[in-house]
Design a protein around this nucleic acid. Structure first.
Lengths: 164, 164
DNA sequence: TTCAATTTCTTTAGGCTTCAAGCAATTGGC
DNA sequence: GCCAATTGCTTGAAGCCTAAAGAAATTGAA
């Protein structure tokens, strides 16, 4: 007779403290790094992190993106993107035009100035990240990549289960 | 003659793409999980994530905390905590009193109702996290804990270097 | 064709967050 | 005691963010 499976069958509270501690540690790491990056972007380039992130998405899409694409990629709400884009168009970093074949759709691109500005920021940004992770060996980095990929997959699966 | 060290000496751009990808993956994981937790807290308990986080800090501190303590622990600004606490006092979850020995200091605690409410939420919250990480083996969890601890240390060291 | 459903984006209300400036209380050097 | 520096918190301005409701354009089934 298997006591463990009996125990599970009656839904006794299980211990998930390790997973909880993992989540808190993950959150701490991200918050820490995010704060450092935010501060440096601000003092060096007077730009906010969301603006930088949006420009990063567009830098990889020379043909532009729709607002919905951006929203999915950045995992933020549509309304959020609307406001963000508005300010970046205003400041001359972004170009926005309505798609002729579907007038609901707005396609946004980096302007020439916006791209130049972003490239300058991105180059420095990369060195900050390297500095932040400088105690990690190449193997640490590989292991983390692999484990985080697995964690991401697990989280996505959980989310899709939830969506049913 | 060592070409590599020559190369470094003239500051040629090094490749830090792996570290950058690691950071993006870390951010993606956190954003994904944070969104899931936020949504569940909202639909199940009609509470926001920052409120939950603040109550979690206080649950571990039966004797209460000062606003500065909370601010450091949560890694958010002082002004942020002021507003958050204000709303939670208003809703009856928190009790706030001025320290007699130093009238600048506010000590906040969970009220009885606040603590009961939090315990209920925390129990469910733990199962959500377990579900989100359910594809990870116990070894994966241990490895991630260890590597993230190392990453956190590295980030903190970088931040303190920066602060000089 | 027609119109209900869907998609894309915007708007609104409310809350979160930062930074910087400011106020009040305390501390420490003189 | 005096007062300059520090500490703890609040305020204000600006921006970020979400959820929900709504407007405009498109699609597709009858």
């Amino acid at each position: 007779m298997n006591l463990d499976s009996e125990t599970k069958a009656v839904e006794l509270p299980e211990d998930h403290g390790d997973e909880l501690r993992l989540w808190l540690r993950l959150l701490t790491c991200t918050t820490l790094i995010e704060g450092a990056v935010r501060g440096r972007l601000r003092e060096r380039f007077d730009v906010t992190l969301p603006r930088f992130d949006l420009m990063a998405q567009l830098d990889r899409a020379p043909d532009g993106m729709t607002l919905s694409d951006v929203s999915k990629r950045m995992m933020v709400s549509n309304g959020n993107v609307t406001g963000l884009v508005e300010r970046l168009v205003e400041s001359g970093h972004l170009d926005r035009r309505t798609l002729v074949s579907d007038r609901r759709v707005q396609v946004i691109r980096l302007t020439k100035a916006g791209r130049a500005e972003f490239r300058k920021m991105a180059a420095e940004h990369e060195t900050w990240i390297a500095d932040i992770f400088s105690d990690l060996t190449p193997k640490d980095v590989r292991d983390l990549m692999r484990l985080l990929a697995k964690a991401k997959g697990s989280a996505q699966k959980a989310a899709s289960r939830r969506a049913l």
